[in-house]
Design a protein around this nucleic acid. Structure first.
Lengths: 251, 251
DNA sequence: TTCTCTAACTTGTTATAACAAGTTGTTGTT
DNA sequence: AACAACAACTTGTTATAACAAGTTAGAGAA
């Protein structure tokens, strides 16, 4: 039952995907004006409500900004992708550099899967608990360590409901965004969720993984992510060192 | 030029405010079904696009969840309000409590204004810098300390562009949400923004403010918040202790 | 009683239409 | 040359309409 809503193509979603791809692949660059609603009508033969719905999605996802009387302006792409992405940290919190630091310098993000996806019960020590009914089911559990330019930056646990994801264990998580995978392969899109944030100190195994002293402060971010499928939510727990890099997000 | 768009009442926004008030004031409780689109049509004499636009706003702001064929379901209210709110922390991160902890227990959030709003240049040590043009203007700067049940939890610096906010210094910031105030008094609504997150250790003055030892980890959250007014963005820098409470957000 | 199917709800998608309102460049006047 | 007014764009708001699709409860058959 993959992609069961492709039966009727959902035109506004189709247009969204087209424009989104054009933006992410650089066909439209930050600051550019998207074709006007009228142009899109002429090009795609879709009517105003449909086009507006597609553009609304792009606004919601932070790809464009609309300006009455002017047009739809493409926003700069989020750097890493995901709800929160990483950014090179300003040299010293006590001083603000006037000239932009090398935020946009080449950041090679690599992902190392420490524990490959396998079936398990819902793990302990997660700040969210699924509803009782879901606890009976099994979950895919995996752990990965993400590095920027070879330096470990954050350690992440992912817990996904298994019954909606046939064949997940076969797919590569290495260099693909989880969001991308869920949307394109399983037709599941993120619609919202909850997150809990706190600052702790690195415990021994974590400190070794991230390569920081045991006492250093570490950011912890737990999430429950809800999707268009009402009984599909996944969970993640993330530990990040933020001495050289910090978490960056749009909302 | 306050509330200049009240000239034409913007019916979908009006309906949004009505429903939103009914939800926040408990007239509709979590789990309730909102009146159907048809009922709203009968009651308010607004047509489907208008009603749907109002409901979409409520969805976007996390007040309701829509379910095709069923209706619009009221979601539980966010606890504190703001982009991120506070929540009582689970007793120990090493153990997950099966029974819900007292998250929803009475939390009396009080706000103490340490530095009342006054005109100043854009301060140093903020992780966001306004565009050069805006730096020429003056800003309202204020500092406040927010406590839960009398215990200091986070310290916040707020920087607001002064030219759009006549008479701001006269308004009380004490027990009113900044969002609420901007929306109702100045007709400015938050549309998005950026945030940067990191974990640090408390320095001496901060440690004293929050009542924590100097070495304890502290969460820092800097934001640039964009609004419907294109040249109105405000900035905030927040330091939170997360040993007894943690930050909680919806997205 | 239990099950199945249907009718009557609900929201979702798309089309057409008319006017309001913000932006920008151009035209024409001073 | 500077300015004002306008025309031609843009998106925003609201109305009307028809059909698709998910949900639910009740009627009727087994």
């Amino acid at each position: 039952m993959i992609n069961d809503s492709t039966s009727r193509p959902l035109q506004y979603r189709y247009l969204y995907e087209v424009l989104r791809r054009q933006i992410t692949q650089g066909e439209f660059k930050a600051g550019d004006l998207l074709p006007s609603e009228k142009d899109l009508y002429l090009q795609y033969k879709l009517t105003k409500p449909t086009i507006r719905q597609a553009l609304s999605l792009l606004v919601q996802d932070g790809y464009i900004r609309k300006h009455q009387g002017k047009g739809s302006i493409v926003k700069p792409l989020p750097l890493g992708l995901g709800v929160m992405s990483i950014v090179g940290r300003l040299v010293d919190t006590a001083t603000v550099e006037t000239d932009e630091p090398a935020d946009h310098a080449q950041q090679i993000i690599s992902t190392q899967v420490l524990v490959p996806p396998h079936l398990s019960d819902f793990p302990a020590n997660i700040l969210f608990i699924p509803p009782e009914d879901d606890l009976k089911n099994q979950f895919y559990y995996l752990e990965r360590l993400r590095s920027v330019n070879g330096e470990p930056v954050f350690f992440e646990k992912l817990i996904l409901p298994s019954q909606h994801l046939p064949g997940l264990a076969d797919l590569s998580f290495e260099n693909r965004s989880l969001f991308e995978l869920l949307r394109t392969v399983y037709n599941i899109v993120v619609q919202g969720g909850e997150q809990k944030l706190l600052a702790t100190t690195a415990t021994e195994p974590l400190a070794r993984l991230l390569g920081v002293p045991q006492t250093s402060p570490v950011l912890r971010l737990d999430k429950r992510v809800d999707t268009n499928n009402n009984d599909f939510s996944y969970y993640s727990s993330l530990y990040a060192r933020t001495d050289h890099f910090l978490l960056h997000g749009r909302f």
